[in-house]
Design a protein around this nucleic acid. Structure first.
Length: 173
DNA sequence: GACCGGATCCGT
DNA sequence: CGGATCCGGTCT
């Protein structure tokens, strides 16, 4: 299982290294969904595209936590997006999980809103510790070494040129 | 209390 | 490219 020190790392390092890792999620019915992460993005407080750009609020508070805390938010009146905080306590940063290749049965999900919808992630799953053993969320090593590409982040208007999106071809996994 | 824009998705 | 749909943040 990925422990606290993994999530305390630099945000872009965490975002890149999460590609090819396994995520498990215990949904509201107690069923455990597992899959390999295929797409992520990094966000910082010192970044006009980030929710934390204007300081701490009730909503973005998990971004200010030490690494390994979930940040789920509601957007466009219809979707949830799932992030995990990174770096040290008080430093606003998180990685948005944008895509996953679910196992058993195999199913590729691309897009953060769609991923939350398919898996059943909602605000109930905000502010949880992914380093808690047998928690709602846990992350694991897989030994996979996926070929990772980068690009600008999706759906933002500021800092669109920064190559802070990381992804691999789900079909290569 | 009102207004505005958004880390999305899907169909056209 | 626009519509769905509603919450958080900001200003009054």
């Amino acid at each position: 299982m990925l422990e606290r020190d993994f999530f305390l790392n630099d945000t872009l390092t965490v975002a890149e290294k999460l590609i090819g890792k396994r995520m498990s999620f215990k949904n509201n019915e107690g069923r455990v969904l597992k899959g390999i992460i295929t797409e992520t993005e990094g966000y910082f407080g010192d970044d006009e595209a980030s929710h934390a750009a204007k300081g701490i609020t009730k909503r973005n508070k998990p971004m200010f936590s030490f690494g390994g805390i979930t940040y789920v938010y509601f957007i466009y009146g219809m979707y949830y997006c799932f992030n995990v905080s990174t770096e040290k306590e008080g430093f606003p940063s998180a990685v948005l999980i944008r895509g996953i290749k679910l196992e058993d049965p195999e199913f590729i999900v691309q897009g953060p809103g769609k991923m939350c919808k398919v898996m059943g992630i909602s605000l109930l799953h905000n502010n949880l510790d992914v380093c808690h053993k047998n928690g709602t969320f846990n992350f694991y090593e897989t030994g996979l070494l996926p070929k990772i590409q980068t690009s600008g982040r999706i759906g933002i208007k500021k800092n669109i040129h920064l190559p802070w999106r990381f992804f691999t071809n789900p079909k290569d996994l």
